Amino acid sequence: MQLIFLGTSAGRPTRSRNVTSIALSLPEPHCGFWLFDAGEGTQHRMLGSKLKLNKLERIFVTHLHGDHIYGLPGLLSSRSYFEGAGPLTIYGPPGIRSYLEQTFELTGVHLGYELHIVEIAEGEVAADERYLVEAAALEHRLPCFGYRITERPQSGQLNLKRLAELGVPAGPLFGKLKRGEDVTLECGTTISAADVVGQPHPGRVVTILGDTRPCENAVKLACSADLLVHEATFAGGLEEKAAAYGHSTFTQAAEIAKAANAKRLVVTHFSSRYDDEEVAELANGAKAIFERIEPAVEMAEINVPRLPLTNS
């Protein structure tokens, strides 16, 4: 799993930072990616990355402020020009359907693929055999959500040497054993999956929050996350100003990560008043609260490595 920050600026773009968008690249066998928010210019940023719109599978919108959604209509329209662009699902707060459908109607857009729009509430948002996505409401000036992406545990590796010793033929029986099912050979011998399958790989958890004041749901969504992405619009000491606009400071983001026992914190959504050097200094100053804090860098790729095997 890998995050790519396509935009890290709050409110409006700057010369060095675009407005909010984060891509989550998925490992094999998916090899696709999901997008979290799409501020104006997101598709332009993608042109300078390895991301291709025909590999985009899902878009999760945190809220309907323009710096998080104004890039959606153009991006969705351009996706029609990519060969192999399959169905796409957009998840977002109530109003996202009306925004997109009216935009398409007024501008005469006809998409060349199937688009599904899901207006979400708190709880489970999406699920498949590999991932679970949950949402909870945050505290902002508009209805806003944060997302918790949980990778399901992956089964361990087959012990091919032991399988050969036991006389298990390659084929469907391998699949059953890998799924944890015991099998019986033609000779009547029963093979226990626990004897020939290694330890499972625990899944990873990535939490991506929208704009928010510090709140209880931010801590819940980020609980023990391998990576937390939290906004840090203002410098520590400007908590009153941050609260008035529904935002957080670098200090508050670090406090949320600490309270949630997150393993790593990447802050983003920086006010245009701060240049890149000042952003780095502010993040460094928050390390007294949470050591593993780092500022998102425009177009930077953040790897979320697979956890080591659990002991049994």
Rank of each mutant, 00 (worst) to 15 (best):
98 S>K: 10
100 L>Q: 04
102 Q>R: 14
103 T>P: 03
105 E>Y: 07
105 E>R: 15
106 L>R: 06
108 G>E: 02
111 L>G: 08
112 G>H: 06
112 G>C: 12
112 G>R: 10
114 E>L: 05
114 E>F: 11
116 H>Q: 14
117 I>K: 07
118 V>D: 11
120 I>R: 13
120 I>Y: 09
127 A>C: 13
130 R>I: 11
133 V>T: 09
133 V>P: 13
135 A>G: 06
138 L>C: 06
139 E>S: 14
143 P>Q: 10
143 P>G: 04
145 F>Y: 15
145 F>N: 08
145 F>R: 05
147 Y>G: 08
148 R>D: 03
150 T>E: 13
153 P>I: 03
153 P>G: 03
158 L>E: 05
160 L>S: 11
160 L>P: 08
163 L>C: 01
164 A>Y: 13
165 E>A: 05
167 G>L: 04
167 G>H: 01
170 A>H: 15
170 A>N: 10
171 G>R: 00
171 G>V: 09
172 P>N: 04
176 K>L: 10
177 L>M: 02
178 K>V: 02
178 K>P: 01
178 K>N: 04
181 E>N: 13
183 V>I: 14
188 G>M: 10
192 S>V: 09
194 A>L: 06
195 D>H: 09
196 V>C: 00
196 V>Y: 05
199 Q>D: 09
200 P>G: 08
201 H>A: 13
202 P>R: 02
202 P>T: 02
203 G>W: 07
203 G>V: 06
207 T>L: 05
208 I>K: 02
